[in-house]
Simulated scan of single mutants.
Amino acid sequence: MSEFSHISSNGEANMVDVTGKAVTTREALAEAFVYMNEEAISLIQRGDHHKGDIFAAARIAGIQGAKKTADLIPLCHPLMLTKVAVDLELQAAEGRVRIETRCKLDGKTGVEMEALTAASVASLTLFDMCKAVDPGMRIEGLRVLKKTGGKTGLWSA
Rank of each mutant, 00 (worst) to 15 (best):
M1E: 10
S5Y: 05
H6W: 06
H6M: 07
I7R: 11
S9W: 12
N14H: 15
N14M: 15
M15F: 08
K21L: 13
V23L: 12
T24N: 05
R26I: 07
F33I: 05
N37L: 11
E38F: 05
E38G: 07
E38N: 12
I44D: 00
Q45K: 15
Q45L: 13
Q45M: 09
D48C: 12
H49E: 05
G52T: 04
A57Q: 10
A58P: 02
R59I: 03
R59S: 01
A61W: 03
I63N: 03
Q64D: 06
K67H: 12
K68R: 10
K68C: 05
K68F: 00
K68E: 11
T69Q: 05
A70Y: 10
D71R: 14
L72H: 14
P78H: 08
P78V: 03
P78N: 05
L79Y: 05
M80D: 11
T82Q: 14
K83V: 15
V84Y: 03
V84G: 00
A85K: 15
V86I: 02
E89D: 10
E94P: 02
R96C: 07
V97F: 00
R98N: 04
R98P: 02
R98F: 02
L105T: 08
L105M: 13
G107T: 04
T109Q: 10
L116C: 06
T117N: 09
A118P: 00
A118M: 00
A119V: 00
T125S: 05
F127T: 03
M129L: 14
C130R: 03
K131T: 01
A132Q: 07
A132H: 04
V133C: 11
D134A: 11
G136H: 09
R138S: 14
K146S: 12
K146T: 10
K146H: 12
K146D: 08
T148C: 09
T148W: 06
L154E: 10
S156H: 15
S156P: 09
A157H: 12
